[in-house]
Amino acid sequence: MNRIDITATRSSESVLSTNKLIKNTYILLSMTLLFSAVTATASVLLAVPGWTYMASLIGAMVLIWFVLPRTANSSAGLGVIFGITGLMGFGLGPILNHYLSMANGSQIVGTAMAGTGIIFLGLSGYALTSKRDFNFMGGFLMAGLLVVFIAILAGLFIDLPALHLAISAVVIMLMSGFILYDTSRMVHGGETNYIMATIGLYLNIYNLFVHLLALLGALSGDD
């Protein structure tokens, strides 16, 4: 009887901690996305130059690689994650200004934002409710990401519009897979830190938005 009690207590503790992780992750994700939107709006209004995108990404990458892993288990990690997402949002300014200057620019940006939101909520909701373990996708997704980086590297020196479109299409599918994978990792105990879980999901949403915007911008009727 005691063994059953202990098992039940452990199981309910595990469910509680998973629920707490999911709740904290989504709260932090909402706050960071909101903060990103504020900094993106500021950079659009300030009409910052094109190199801001690159500079912001370099700053964010340094924080993600070298600072966040050391601070993720402390309250300092919260400041770092807002620094990363604020920088990445600010870097979006030149891209958004480019699309907003198009004839149907506001429609393209609005559609990309709404589309990203719907895709994320749909996939994350699917992973949460189906309770399936998508951990088996990890190797495939990382290999896919490396192939995409190599293709982007090649695309820098080969001016082929079709290649850029293909990369955006692949990134959208890859990020969709990463949303399933990252959400599933929270549910199945692969990720127990809500700050690291948040940055993973944030990067998925960010890349999804940027590449959906690129695809819609390139294939819109007025381009």
Partner: peptide, 14 residues
């Protein structure tokens, strides 16, 4: 299955 839905949804957005 969900990835196919995403592809269909993106085509709809385009």
């Amino acid at each position: 299955l969900p990835i196919a839905f995403v592809v269909g949804f993106v085509i709809l957005l385009i």
